[in-house]
């Protein structure tokens, strides 16, 4: 099989497996996997910026939260139906990403990390400040009756899994297509050697801004769907912890690989799930894994696979 053939076979194969699993998984894992797929979509967005473009953001929770609030506030206060509300969520994320990107991309390295961290913190505080509308940390519930889209009752496990699957498939295939395109190759070139890319005539700033907008848009889509599928919108999702988690998932699965975000999210989800069975301090696992990754496995699971076995993995 050609390399392109192998790539498509592998990725479509994973999607096929995920689709089939909904019919066989026991209820508990069925629910978990639906959640993992939505969170993995968040990680896919994060990976476009961090893994492929080399921009380490410490504030991606703000895009996730922008999507969630864009969707949730439109439904709660404007009485929108889920379809338009989801679009409002994604657009909120893209607009926020363009504004933050236009400012933050004037800095590099540590400066960029801190600027994104600060903007995310400001977004979180804004959500608290307008607590009358957002209900702050407490959050608000989206009623079951409102969570119906195209005849699907999203509060039911079956439709919920299916919609999560569609979202994840769309995000993963989008990221695969982008990274196979000329635009994606330029992003990788910028990650590898920004000055060289500039001296080949590429507008580095615009490409980076494009990556930030795309990444923020996907993260916002994940946030909007998360709020809709699980019926809850709250400021917790804007905290720093939700900026660190996608970094952890992507590092764990393999930064700059298409499958890495999913593998990392799945692995971390069950790691935390299992450890919270016997301790309240389950974030300890996150800490230990982060340190171990930085020390021993910089490429993550899929990255190590690519380095050792399958050079053709995108």
């Amino acid at each position: 099989m050609s390399e392109a053939g192998k790539v498509w076979a592998l990725h479509l194969g994973l999607l096929g497996l995920l689709f089939a699993l909904q019919f066989v998984l026991p209820a508990y894992h069925h629910g978990n996997l639906a959640r993992v797929m939505v969170l993995a979509s968040f990680a896919v967005g994060y990976n476009l910026m961090f893994g492929y473009t080399g921009l380490l953001s410490l504030g991606h929770a703000m895009f996730f939260a922008a999507g969630m609030y864009g969707m949730g506030l439109a439904m709660r206060h404007l009485g929108w139906t889920p379809g338009p509300a989801l679009i409002a969520g994604v657009l909120s994320g893209v607009v926020l990403a363009l504004v933050v990107g236009a400012l933050a991309l004037r800095t590099v390295g540590v400066g960029f990390m801190i600027v994104t961290l600060m903007f995310a913190q400001a977004v979180y505080l804004v959500a608290l400040y307008f607590g009358e509308w957002t209900r702050g940390d407490e959050g608000f519930v989206i009623q079951q009756a409102e969570r119906v889209m195209m005849g699907l009752d999203l509060s039911q496990p079956g439709p919920r899994y299916f919609v999560a699957f569609v979202l994840f498939s769309a995000c993963m295939l989008l990221s695969l297509r982008v990274m196979q395109s000329g635009f994606g190759k330029v992003l990788i070139a910028i990650r590898e050697n920004e000055e060289r890319a500039r001296m080949l005539g590429y507008n580095v700033f615009r490409h980076k801004l494009g990556a930030v907008a795309l990444s923020g848009g996907i993260a916002a889509a994940a946030g909007a769907f998360y709020g809709l599928l699980f019926g809850y919108v709250g400021a917790t999702f804007a905290t720093t912890q939700y900026s660190i988690l996608p970094l952890l998932w992507v590092l764990l699965g393999g930064a700059g690989t298409i499958l890495g975000p999913f593998v990392g999210t799945l692995f971390a989800f069950y790691l935390i799930d299992i450890s919270s069975g016997f301790t309240t301090a389950h974030m300890l696992v996150v800490g230990v894994v982060l340190v171990a990754l930085a020390l021993f496995a910089r490429q993550g699971i899929v990255g190590e696979l690519r380095a050792r076995l399958w050079r053709w993995l995108p």
């Binding site: 190759k185 990788i188 070139a189 590898e192 050697n193 060289r196 890319a197």
Partner: peptide
């Protein structure tokens, strides 16, 4: 100042 982790082909293709 080449793109070290890309193939020689991809380096030129970018140009």
């Amino acid at each position: 100042s080449v793109f070290a982790r890309l193939s020689a082909h991809e380096n030129v293709a970018l140009a």
